[in-house]
Design a protein around this nucleic acid. Structure first.
Lengths: 199, 199
DNA sequence: AAATCCGGAATGAATGTTCATTCCGTTTTT
DNA sequence: AAAAACGGAATGAACATTCATTCCGGATTT
């Protein structure tokens, strides 16, 4: 029982690291087994196939991401504060375990993701969408397609993660970049239609 | 000679469509051959292997993208106009052949890209970076890491392309989204440190 | 309490499949 | 009629998955 969870955990851990590093297709089952310190066949006692392993992992990451975004969410404060909270929680989540961020950014829209995985991603996007719509009703956010908002946030964040991974950029330098990106993103979306009478 | 180019063109065309749709790994050489109306072996008369085919395609796309960004670039106008020009040219390029956009967004940072491909991508990023740095010298753009700018532009655009591809969003609806994204991106980066106090 | 038995977890060599690449007979070009 | 280009079947390496066997810890018998 405990031993079971133990093995499953070792397997998902190894798979997460390898998928994040090399991607789904480039990761071979025996690699996962070796990294997990387990026989290849053992993986199939816990996951019916490679694809299911990917999906289990993806769903778990999405659930954790959603939980991170919602954690301590200040529903009662200003939209700007809510935005900062969401952004900072998201970034903290991504940085807390970079394997997770690389894994997510590498497997978004992967055709091997099943319906449950897509649904899990939708839950995350819906949470952000709800925030946007609330801000728009209030008039604090521009009246634009919420998916544009999502694309800007999610797209720029995953891109910059890839960028960090694939260039020898120093991590601490990007600490600052995340803040710049947060502020720039806020300026992108706050409704400043009165502040700028001309453009 | 003419026949040669003809076949090579058919092959790269088929490969572009398939790579864009299914990705590099999921595309099999016989698929490319069939779609190109050509024997499998014939591909190897024009490309030494699958990887080289990917790279030839990627480099050609990056060159075209760079050319599109530079085409009619208004070097002597305001930064805002330069931004709009670059953005609109970029979007027009991506929309003119969606296979190209999906191909690019799916293969950025792919480990099978070789040095020449990475260099070709760098050229594009450098062009954008030069624009940012000029705008920053002028004081029209925020003093942030130019790579953050690039991540926001490039990341949000490729994400929204994927979004369009993987949801049944209507194309014409996104016509509008591209404009919203352009305006939001501009607001993200323009230096509004003086205007801000009035909000 | 030692010896034996048992169930099912774990294993990794064997299997079968899926391709990238090659090879060679045929067709087209020169 | 030689040379070059072509097609697509053949090849073999790489890989996901399977399955006959081992292993282990806990019950059952002596």
């Amino acid at each position: 029982m405990t031993a079971n969870n133990d093995k499953a955990k070792k397997i998902t851990d190894a798979a997460l690291a390898l998928f994040a590093d090399r991607g789904y297709e480039m990761t071979k089952m025996p690699m996962i087994a070796e990294k997990a310190g387990v026989g290849t066949g053992t993986i199939y006692r816990y996951f019916t196939n490679k694809r299911e392993l990917l999906n289990a992992l993806y769903q778990s990451c999405m659930q954790d991401l959603l939980a991170a975004l919602q954690d301590g969410y200040p529903y009662h404060t200003s939209i700007h504060e809510q935005f900062n909270h969401m952004y900072q929680n998201g970034v903290a989540f991504l940085k807390q375990d970079t394997r997770i961020s690389y894994f997510i950014s590498k497997h978004n829209f992967n055709p091997d993701l099943d319906d449950k995985s897509v649904a899990a991603q939708q839950q995350v996007l819906d949470f952000i969408r709800a925030f946007v719509e609330k801000g728009q009703k209030e008039g604090s956010l521009k009246q634009i397609n919420p998916d544009v908002f999502i694309a800007l946030l999610y797209g720029s964040l995953t891109f910059i993660m890839d960028f960090i991974l694939h260039t020898d950029a120093k991590k601490d330098q990007f600490e600052r970049s995340f803040n710049e990106l947060r502020e720039a993103s806020w300026d992108a979306f706050q409704n400043n239609s009165f502040g700028k009478e001309r453009n």
